[in-house]
Design a protein around this nucleic acid. Structure first.
Length: 195
DNA sequence: TCTCAGATTAACT
DNA sequence: GTTAATCTGAGAC
């Protein structure tokens, strides 16, 4: 399982995001590997009012101002963790929110962590995905271009489905931007694409 | 199958 | 004090 190189993330988030569809998110938990195919993402950049990085550097979002190819993890709605990968050009800040996975490996462990049986309920949303892979703030800033406890690996070409661009979910600003990208027709995304 | 409100914390006004 | 890159169970239909 080969991690994607740093250069992959040294582009605008809106370009990195669609290319992440079909790649693999890998989590090593003790000696077990939990693997999912990325089927839904959203791009956020510093010129985007909906992004956490829009109002400049803070303690929470500092990862998005750092090196591309690292994990930006935040705590949302008082109870959920959400995971981004950082992606940016020289002077910007940005990231790509991983919103949904198709579980491939370690599914029984994901079931245990989630307290759910059905495969489509294990990682079909950013909060669910973090729970299924035991992702929390202890993984903040992890380099995801190295084979470690959390990284993104290259998916096989068969896992590179058609990508559809749609409006993002759960935001109130810049709702006209179509920066959500899903694997067309996947049963494992958080909700069906709207127009 | 769909809609609604509760949970619970951090960031910002 | 309010809102937020969310999820879930309950109750309606």
């Amino acid at each position: 399982m080969q991690p994607l190189p740093r250069a992959f993330y040294e582009r605008h988030p809106a370009l990195v995001a669609p290319d992440l569809i079909g790649q693999l998110l890998v989590r090593r938990l003790d000696d077990e590997l939990l693997v999912g195919r990325i089927v839904e993402v959203e791009a956020y950049s510093s010129e985007d009012p909906a992004s956490h990085s829009f109002n400049g550097l803070t303690e929470r979002n500092r990862a998005m101002f750092g090196l591309p190819g690292h994990a930006y993890i935040y705590f949302s709605y008082g109870m959920h963790h959400c995971m981004n990968v950082t992606a940016r050009l020289d002077t910007e800040a940005g990231g790509v929110l991983i919103r949904a996975l198709e579980p491939l490996r370690g599914i029984d462990t994901m079931r245990r962590l989630r307290g759910r049986e059905r495969a489509t309920e294990l990682a079909s949303g950013p909060g669910k995905l973090a729970q299924a892979l035991a992702i929390d703030k202890t993984l903040y800033g992890v380099d995801i271009t190295e084979t470690g406890v959390l990284f993104v690996a290259e998916g096989d070409e068969e896992g590179r489905p058609t990508v559809a661009a749609t409006p993002r979910i759960g935001i109130s600003k810049a709702i006209d931007l179509r920066w959500r990208f899903v694997a067309a027709g996947s049963r494992f995304i958080s909700c069906p694409p709207r127009s």
